[in-house]
């Protein structure tokens, strides 16, 4: 399996010396579920530890280029409550 370089987010450690993460570009879903490569496992742990990071937003316009870290939030999947549904069908 091909590998890709992926940085590990620790101060003082350069991205170029990071662990080799399996290239997930061509991995099928069945394989993904059972894949237990150590570098992938470490990366998954990092994602789970820092899940809030994924919710950052870059704003433009008023405050160009702003990095606005969002708070961890519970996001109701029922956001489009009945009263807010659009009144047209496309």
């Amino acid at each position: 399996m091909a590998e890709q370089r992926r940085g590990v987010a620790t101060p003082g450690r350069d991205a170029g010396r990071a662990a080799r993460l399996p290239d997930l570009t061509h991995v099928d879903l069945r394989t993904l579920r059972v894949l237990d490569d150590p570098a992938l496992t470490a990366e998954v742990e990092r994602v789970l530890r820092n899940a809030a990071e994924c919710q950052e937003v870059w704003h433009s316009g008023e405050g160009e280029g702003e990095l606005q870290p969002s708070v961890v939030r519970t996001f109701s999947a029922g956001l489009a409550e009945a009263g807010r549904l659009p009144d047209e069908r496309g």
Binding site: H59, F75, S76, E88
Partner: peptide, 24 residues
Amino acid sequence: DDLDPYRLPSPDTGRGALRAADRS
């Protein structure tokens, strides 16, 4: 995409919160 509820961050994230446009 003016429909998917995941298209926006939560409106209660404080400064910089975004509001979706309704179709109308």
